[in-house]
């Protein structure tokens, strides 16, 4: 069937692991703030402010950061669910931001998204079979019988059964709904999936089931993931490389082991030490506790955005923005202290 054919194609791709699938250059997304009688634009929320990275074929790039740092906006911009202000997003060498809406459909066939909240991301009035089959219909598979065959195959892949086809979302638990969301993302046999906080709304024991499912599917279909999350230990477990975002910028990017053992940016260090560890002996040591809150992206601090909370701040930090530099092969950092 269709899926087995595509599998062979993808296993060939997987061998050439250095092929870059998604390439992002200087991505910027400003949201205008309007106020007054004539709704004039008075300011901009700088949600994403010059982000560059690339994702290799078959790898998982983790994108981690606190709420409001712009990680979700990056994910949505790649699929053009929000229109980026400027920058370049190349998928397989072709610029998505310049694509016409007719071409966009073929891009989106290869790129899908799994959302954070499984309850609100499925239409409550559609049966599961319809929801999961809808992408196929939109992309031109009009034969209802074939559609249903693929939907059943997909539901079985994610651990559900054919008998669930005619059920409605309210009949399922959060973990099951997330499985359905994953099945829907997979029906078109995409290469690239944006996972936007796929497990943060789920209970601990269900989280592990979904993470295992995602890695099984990656192996089986040769998928490439952009894994967005706020939980650094989940990201580290799941990703090949990790990018840390703070206020619209990537401040550190490295392989997962490197970022865990040799994190250079003071924000990454604070994030690492802030994670409560399920080991009572290890924990009660001194941790780095940042003071204050994340500043508003409406009016980010001058210079390095982190300098208002940084424990090792220097004079230079509030003057100029540090350059995003490669300190050792594959390990990029933007910090005055380090450079």
């Amino acid at each position: 069937m269709r899926h087995t054919q595509c599998n062979d194609g993808q296993s060939n791709l997987k061998e050439s692991t250095n092929h870059i699938l998604v390439e992002i250059h200087n991505l910027v997304k400003y949201f205008p703030v309007r106020s007054g009688l004539f709704q004039k634009i008075t300011a901009y929320v700088k949600a994403v402010d010059g982000v560059s990275f690339n994702i290799k074929d078959g790898e998982t790039l983790g994108l981690v950061g606190e709420s409001g740092c712009g990680k979700t906006t990056v994910g949505r911009s790649i699929l053009r669910l929000t229109r980026a202000t400027s920058g370049e997003i190349l998928y397989d060498g072709k610029d998505i931001l310049k694509a016409k809406s007719s071409d966009l459909k073929s891009f989106r066939r290869n790129m899908q998204i799994i959302f954070q909240d499984p309850y609100s991301s499925l239409d409550p009035r559609l049966q599961i079979g319809e929801s999961v089959g809808l992408p196929l219909y939109v992309h031109g598979m009009k034969n209802a019988k074939q559609r249903q065959e693929i939907v059943v195959a997909m539901l079985e892949k994610v651990g559900l059964k054919a008998q669930h086809l005619n059920h409605y979302p309210y009949e399922f638990s959060g973990g099951q709904l997330q499985r359905i969301g994953i099945a829907r993302a997979l029906t078109l046999n995409p290469k690239f999936i944006v996972c936007d906080e796929p497990v943060s709304a789920l209970d601990v024991s269900i989280q592990a089931q979904i993470l295992n499912l995602l890695s099984d599917l990656q192996e089986e279909f040769g998928l490439t993931y952009l894994f967005i999350a706020h939980n650094l230990s989940v990201v580290k477990h799941f990703s090949d490389r990790v990018a840390v975002m703070y206020l619209g910028k990537i401040i550190e990017l490295a392989d997962r082991d490197e970022i865990y053992k040799n994190h250079l940016h003071p924000y990454t260090q604070a994030l690492m030490s802030a994670i409560p560890h399920p080991n009572p002996h290890r924990n009660r040591q001194k941790r780095i506790i940042l003071t204050g809150d994340v500043p508003s992206p409406l009016n980010p601090p001058a210079g390095c955005h982190f300098h208002t909370r940084c424990p090792v701040v220097m004079d230079v930090c509030n003057q100029g923005e540090p350059e995003f530099k490669e300190m050792s092969p594959g390990h990029w950092v933007a910090c005055w202290k380090v450079s």
């Binding site: 601990v204 024991s205 230990s233 477990h237 690492m272």
Partner: peptide, 12 residues
């Protein structure tokens, strides 16, 4: 079932 920073497990 929880991923821990200093451990490497292929599967949870």
């Amino acid at each position: 079932s929880i991923p821990v920073l200093d451990q490497d497990r292929k599967r949870l």
